[in-house]
Write a protein that binds this DNA or RNA. Structure first.
Lengths: 101, 101
DNA sequence: ACGTTCATACGATAAACGACGTACTACGAT
DNA sequence: ATCGTAGTACGTCGTTTATCGTATGAACGT
């Protein structure tokens, strides 16, 4: 589980899925990752097998959603802490990259 | 950082260091890990390079301590959430292993 | 029926990782 | 001076991992 979230790409996926409302879903293709489709499939599979997301076929597309409830039951506060920390970290890096005077 | 904590051995080290008071320290050898000394060194190095622990030589022994302050500043609540979740997970597994009637 | 789109499956490959053993250094005790 | 102890450095080995390309399958639109 921690391993599943310790990859930048996967964390980006989770970050993308995070603001969705309960039972709201997004197809895999909604996220623009700098990797090929097959690698994307791989990461989604890792997340699914770690219990982080659930995937359902809706006609032609495969919809994804975070398993917020289950995650908060098993790992209370974890996902929240990780995403908060990641947002802060990226904030720092952005500030660094812009090299303020 | 997440990667550093996503290994069972390293998590065990952090779990061991966790209950220590501020500025209390423990030598590497205080933890009984089911791995050789060289592998132990490797894991301690990963933790140190990830900023999770700090290591100081005290005479002949190398003392270790969690960098609680820095970690809570950079990743508020993360370590807490991880250790809580891990404790719960291990609790579940123990209960499963004992196979209650 | 045909092509398009979305996602998976199946290699292949290069890098990273965990684990080991051995050799080495630094310190303290005898 | 010698030995033991604690930890590191380095090389190796097998496994896992992230990435890719290509081929495949399922559903929709024309």
């Amino acid at each position: 589980m921690l391993h599943a979230l310790s990859d930048p790409m996967r964390l980006q996926i989770v970050r993308f899925l995070w603001p969705l409302e309960q039972d709201e879903e997004a197809p895999c293709s909604a996220i623009d990752l700098a990797i090929t489709k097959s690698t994307t499939t791989h990461h989604f599979r890792v997340l699914r097998e770690a219990g982080v997301i659930r995937q359902v076929y809706r006609g032609t597309a495969k919809m994804n959603a975070l398993r917020r409830g289950d995650l908060d039951a098993l790992f209370p506060g974890l996902l929240d802490a990780i995403l908060t920390a990641d947002a802060a970290r990226r904030g720092r890096e952005d500030r660094l990259a812009r090299s303020p005077a």
